[in-house]
């Protein structure tokens, strides 16, 4: 095991930020840490990299560590090359080795044309890639990423996840937090946190299979959304109704309840869809809070 977290709690004064958390991480595994704002994701990651020490419990970590914090943490006045060189030297790498790794990583991140540009003048996505390159420079066994896709445009977000996937495939264990629930699909395993406690630990693909409800999308519901929503919520077995884009999404025990709409209007297009991770986690959250059975 690269990482073994056992019964870890962290208090800030009287407030408990992390409560009795345990999990492990193996080489090559990509583990997502999910949860709403204030769930304790960043605290957990900072405990793991050693920036905080736990109030209770213990954390065993093996091998070299790479860490990308939530806020940009490199030297803005220094160029991409200078940043890579500096951190390489801190990790005790010799110049030749740094040069080799730098070339690999620059090609890999697509930052090669900007190598002399000061980090402060890079775009948000490029900054993220540079931070990942710096974190991967010394070939760590464990990579910890705190919301690497936050504040990054959709294209760069995808690129960042492609990089993470490749890092995982190459054998590095990755612990990555995100507030985008859909990004759970890139992970081998997810920890869903709520108020510092582990709400759910699961493999994303089984989460979809194990979802106890059906999800139905009513396409292009536009103008009728309010009326449909009222109608459906009055029916037995409808758990939730919400809008997603142009569609109305219904979470229910039995998809046939939606037929009530067909009686109202003839040209509604109804389709059963797979649950999104948002559906799954929000459902779990509501269940935990006792809002639904």
């Amino acid at each position: 095991m690269l990482l073994d977290v056992k019964d870890v709690s962290k208090d800030y004064g009287k407030e408990r930020a992390i409560a009795n958390l345990s999990f492990t991480l193996a080489a090559g595994e990509i583990c997502g840490v999910l949860g709403p704002d204030g769930a304790g994701k960043t605290t957990l990651l900072r405990l793991i990299v050693g920036l905080l020490s736990p109030t209770e419990g213990r954390i065993n970590r093996k091998g070299l560590l790479g860490y990308v914090p939530q806020e940009f943490g490199l030297y803005e006045e220094m160029s991409i090359r200078e940043n890579l060189f500096f951190f390489g030297q801190l990790h005790g790498m010799d110049k030749k080795k740094i040069r080799e790794r730098m070339e690999e990583l620059l090609a890999w991140t697509g930052l090669a044309p900007f190598v002399e540009r000061q980090a402060g003048y890079l775009s948000g996505g490029m900054k993220r890639k540079l931070e990942m390159a710096v974190a991967m420079l010394h070939e760590p066994e464990l990579l910890v990423l705190d919301e690497p896709t936050n504040g990054v445009d959709p294209v760069s977000r995808q690129e960042v996840w492609q990089m993470i996937t490749r890092i995982g495939k190459a054998g590095t264990g990755v612990l990555v937090s995100t507030q985008y629930l859909e990004e759970a699909r890139y992970c081998n395993r997810v920890l869903f946190l709520e108020k510092g406690s582990l709400l759910q630990e699961a493999v994303p693909s089984t989460l979809i299979q194990d979802f106890p409800y059906k999800v139905v999308a009513i396409r292009e519901a536009f103008r009728s959304r309010g009326r449909f929503s009222d109608l459906l919520l009055a029916e037995q077995g409808v758990i939730d109704v919400y809008t997603r884009g142009a569609d109305l999404v219904v979470i229910c025990e039995d998809p046939e309840v939606v037929d009530v709409l067909a009686r109202e209007e003839e040209d509604v297009v109804i389709e059963e869809v797979a649950p999104s991770f948002e559906d799954i986690f929000i459902h779990a959250l509501q269940q935990k809070r006792g809002e639904i059975p």
Binding site: G50, Y67, P69, E71, G73, L74, F87, L90
Partner: peptide, 13 residues
Amino acid sequence: ERGTLEQLIVSPL
């Protein structure tokens, strides 16, 4: 303030 100190702390420095 800039968060670079954390990177230094996490490094073997």
